[in-house]
Design a protein around this nucleic acid. Sequence first.
DNA 1: GATAAAAAGCGCAAAAACGAACATTTTCGC
DNA 2: GCGAAAATGTTCGTTTTTGCGCTTTTTATC
Lengths: 255, 255
Amino acid sequence: MTQTIRAPEILEIARRDGKVTVDGLAAHFGVTLQTIRRDLTDLAEAGRLERVHGGAILPSGTSNIGYEERRALNADAKAAIAQACAARIPEDISLFLNIGTSTEAVARALLHHRNLLVVTNNLNIANILVANDSCEIIVTGGTLRRADGGLIGTLAAERIRQFKFDLAVVGCSALDADGDMLDYDIQEVGVSRAILDQSRQTFLVADHSKLARSAPARIGSLSEVDALITDTALPENLARKCADWQTDIVVAPGA
Amino acid sequence: MTQTIRAPEILEIARRDGKVTVDGLAAHFGVTLQTIRRDLTDLAEAGRLERVHGGAILPSGTSNIGYEERRALNADAKAAIAQACAARIPEDISLFLNIGTSTEAVARALLHHRNLLVVTNNLNIANILVANDSCEIIVTGGTLRRADGGLIGTLAAERIRQFKFDLAVVGCSALDADGDMLDYDIQEVGVSRAILDQSRQTFLVADHSKLARSAPARIGSLSEVDALITDTALPENLARKCADWQTDIVVAPGA
DNA sequence: GATAAAAAGCGCAAAAACGAACATTTTCGC
DNA sequence: GCGAAAATGTTCGTTTTTGCGCTTTTTATC
């Protein structure tokens, strides 16, 4: 089990996209499939990756089926959105990252940002960002929700109001035609509201599947966020509203 | 092993790209492959890089090396202590698990306990116990300390005083001949005190290496805990004191 | 379940990279 | 300039890695 020179880059790609494919890596490095397989086997033996048919994924201590599936859903789009979002996040700021698979993707894309103060109520995000040495991590307390690694409860919103963030990145369960951000969980709405109130600037990350869905609890309006980062163009009427609200629309097409 | 003029630049490139190649460096500096190989061999011997075929990469565990070593220290003894401790922990109770490698081992031994309400200020423990579905996990908030996954800060002690635990399992940095529990970090003492105050019952887990060590900050006396779980018999005078205090001594010999 | 397709594993030969010994050049103090 | 010491270049035998053809295993589809 000797280290290969490709190991760091494979791991970086894995952390950025959440997964790697044998085909993709072979093309990327210009080597045969067999060589990549050997690399992935070694990396898996060292516990750095988890081997699956066709490639490898990040080792998930949680192994929550529903969550893993949800994370894999639109993984390419989420990674692209996360890249675009990270590119708009400066260094040396305080930043809140909310619960959600999209915000987790943003955390992965922030691994090379420097001097961030990140506050999060998402255990997975804390686990991802420990790899970034120059980043201070503050975890809000709460009850751990296994479904998504979120820390929930009344205490989270309280804790958040003790801070003032330069920037917040939030997700949502759905986004309706009126430009309202919606969530499945009423408890989380309180947290999201607290975040919007305490941030100088706010980005919403949401892939296109959020547009085709609905949810019962209203977080607020797109007019309250500074930018929406997504992967497909918005319907005409919603795009016009955003223009009126001066809400930037960033479209980052999935690979 | 003499310093070469290229060393700082090689390291800079390595840190920027995550890797360096023999070919690339030879072209960059206009020297032969053999010269670069000598440079990389020296750098690897100095521990600054890790040598691989074709080049070199950054050493893998640059940050958490201290923690991993500490965790591996007396691993057998810690596992045995953890087993003995878990055997004395009933199901259906509320439980606090403090920062520390010994308490992490206890968490691993609790993976098959049912209906526990676990409160912890240790991110690693939260990650371990997600695998136990029947266990509710509450995480105290705080700043993440990379050295050991601990969540620290003034908020932790505050948060703890909002609870009342059936049982607390705590560790300590050292245990002196007078039966005093000691810690390296004065901040943690506040947290440990809060835990002792809020628990109906307390177990201290400490392997024998703690007896041979000292630390500056005093948490409290063994007389305040209900049981000490360790891996070797205590010195005669300390054992007598514990008997007077009605502090149970549990010896779980390492494998 | 049965079957086809994709992916993974295995052994071996070729290629690349490695390290050691020795020749050559550069650097520095005098 | 001169000579010693250090650094670099050259050559060659050895080790490691890679790629190829093959069989075995896993996955997907009917």
